[in-house]
Amino acid sequence: MSVPASASGVAAPAHATAPAPSPAPRNVPALLVKLLAEDFTGAVEVSGSPGGTIHLRLGLVIAVDTPNAPSVETLLIRSGRIDEAGWAAAVTQRATAGEAADVDLNAVLTGRGLIGHGELEAVCIAAVYDAAFAMALSPAEGWTVHEAAVPPELVTCPGESPRTLAEETTRRINALTQAWGAPLAELAAVRCRPAARIDPGALSTRRQAVLLAANGRRTPRDIAFFLGCGVFPAMQDIARLRARRLVEWEAPRTAALPITARVTTPAEVQVGGTHILPRRTRRDRHGENGAGSETTEGKDSS
């Protein structure tokens, strides 16, 4: 029986072993690194509470959508960078242009003078990092990769490296955890309000705005959407305001547990781990001098 030979003339094994498949990514950052190596273009839908969608172009992250963080549109309008009328006019112009290759929302916004190209790019990049941080506050339950996914119109170009994005997200989580001194789930859910006596004049403009927006009903996420800022800056400001005792809030009330154990009365006696009632007594109506006397049943008379 002949043995197949390789092109170099060296005998090859009769039964070549197929290469072992690469292990499945253990988490979302590892998945993004894998997709970067594959120059993947599409989206990763992450399930969780609330989860989100990560858009990629040639493996680079160009946008992140999640209900936990403001979108680029919200950041632009709520912050006052672009007024609502100007935004509506730009969207209408973009829709009228149809599928024209040289007309996108980015070009319309800058072409109308509503915002500079550099500032718009900075907002898009900030939105990517903030949304990634907001998604990392809750664990991912799984993911689905979509090759044919339509990205948002306002994206960063060319995109952000998944490794850099993961490193910055970790840095932000560690910094906030250290500043807050407790799990970030507590900070993310807190509904604070200004302290009774404060001097807001000593604060920066941004922290004054956060302090005024903290009305006892808004979470840091709500404040971010209300002001048109990132969730991370809002949480960071609240942590620093607390350190200066400028905000306060009520701790969540814990419901009282139902009492299911048998209530022990002081008169009960515990013998050998068993609760017993005291022995009954009977009154002798014919004691000495006609006075009643008490005797205890079962008492040793000796």
Score class of each variant (00 low, 15 high):
residue 285 R to T: 14
residue 164 T to W: 05
residue 161 S to V: 00
residue 24 A to E: 15
residue 128 V to C: 07
residue 147 E to P: 00
residue 239 A to E: 04
residue 98 G to P: 04
residue 73 E to F: 08
residue 197 R to A: 12
residue 207 R to T: 08
residue 165 L to R: 10
residue 275 H to K: 11
residue 244 R to G: 14
residue 283 R to D: 10
residue 45 E to R: 13
residue 255 A to N: 09
residue 256 A to G: 06
residue 75 L to I: 01
residue 247 V to R: 05
residue 19 P to H: 07
residue 212 L to N: 10
residue 220 P to Y: 05
residue 266 P to R: 12
residue 39 D to N: 14
residue 61 V to T: 13
residue 96 T to V: 11
residue 302 S to G: 11
residue 268 E to F: 09
residue 13 P to Q: 04
residue 79 S to N: 12
residue 93 Q to G: 02
residue 9 G to V: 07
residue 297 E to D: 15
residue 41 T to Q: 11
residue 279 R to D: 08
residue 273 G to W: 02
residue 90 A to R: 05
residue 5 A to V: 09
residue 17 T to W: 08
residue 160 E to S: 09
residue 28 V to A: 04
residue 300 D to C: 02
residue 166 A to C: 03
residue 43 A to W: 03
residue 78 R to I: 02
residue 70 P to R: 06
residue 33 V to S: 15
residue 108 V to A: 03
residue 184 L to I: 02
residue 261 A to C: 11
residue 114 L to K: 05
residue 245 R to W: 02
residue 217 R to G: 11
residue 259 I to M: 13
residue 173 I to Q: 07
residue 87 W to V: 09
residue 241 L to C: 09
residue 264 T to M: 13
residue 13 P to F: 00
residue 81 R to V: 08
residue 14 A to T: 11
residue 83 D to R: 07
residue 161 S to G: 01
residue 109 L to W: 02
residue 227 L to E: 08
residue 98 G to Y: 06
residue 269 V to D: 08
residue 4 P to E: 09
residue 152 P to E: 06
residue 153 E to F: 01
residue 146 H to C: 10
residue 142 G to N: 07
residue 17 T to S: 13
residue 13 P to V: 06
residue 12 A to W: 06
residue 198 I to S: 08
residue 184 L to S: 03
residue 141 E to G: 14
residue 157 C to K: 13
residue 230 G to C: 09
residue 207 R to P: 00
residue 11 A to D: 12
residue 297 E to I: 11
residue 221 R to Y: 00
residue 96 T to Y: 01
